[in-house]
């Protein structure tokens, strides 16, 4: 399996993280998204005419939607599937708000920054309200006691919110949910989401 990858992309990280948690080997091919815009190169457009990342290639199969890729990776692991549809579309909404603010703040993309940040705060409030209720029922993940692709879809953009000037300080349940994901065996980090140093013993 080959992932055409950009290290700073939250959506590419979703795929890397999912594969790592499942213990599935994944070959990554770095694409120079910034500054060279290689995702729009003729070679990449041939693979994915939309010119977006991630692109997952497995033999003849080519997948270009993050949600689709998560479903594909977990096709043989029912534990990782649940009532995820609604959360996969929520992840796309998060990407539109917080994800856009992040691209604006890091890579100077055009955006109505106040509007996307406001929308981001509304999304985080919804997520927090849901996780508060999950915790009342003794659950830490979005759809139950164990993580599913719903969590993996929503986690990266949420955790990277501060990159776009949206604070996570005031969402205790989101913070504990992120911590639970970061504590999963096989978890891998990305720039902006560091590992839990406390899980390793002091030297």
């Amino acid at each position: 399996m080959i992932l055409y990858d950009y290290i700073l992309s939250a959506s590419c990280y979703q795929v890397r993280l999912m594969a790592a948690l499942l213990g599935q080997p994944l070959t990554t091919r770095a694409v120079n998204f910034h500054p060279a815009k290689e995702h729009k190169s003729p070679e990449m457009l041939k693979l994915n005419p939309k010119g977006t990342l991630p692109v997952l290639q497995d033999g003849d199969l080519v997948l270009t939607e993050s949600a689709e890729i998560l479903r594909y990776l977990t096709r043989d692991t029912p534990d990782w599937r649940g009532q995820d549809e609604v959360w996969l579309s929520f992840a796309a909404a998060l990407n539109g708000s917080i994800g856009t603010a992040r691209l604006h703040d890091i890579l100077s993309y055009d955006a109505d920054i106040d509007a996307v940040r406001r929308a981001g705060v509304q999304h985080l409030r919804q997520l927090e309200a849901h996780l508060v209720e999950q915790r009342f029922d003794g659950m830490i993940f979005l759809t139950g006691h164990t993580p599913t692709i719903a969590d993996i879809a929503c986690f990266p953009t949420t955790a990277l919110a501060p990159d776009g000037g949206v604070s996570l300080d005031v969402y205790p349940s989101i913070r504990l949910w992120m911590r639970a994901i970061r504590s999963l065996p096989g978890f891998i980090e990305m720039p902006g989401i560091h590992r839990l140093h406390e899980l390793e013993a002091a030297p």
Binding site: R135, D169, P172, R175, L176
Partner: peptide, 16 residues
Amino acid sequence: VGLSVDVPAGTVVPRR
């Protein structure tokens, strides 16, 4: 500044 259950043992949180 917050609920005890939101700052479990072994964690740190920012508050203003």
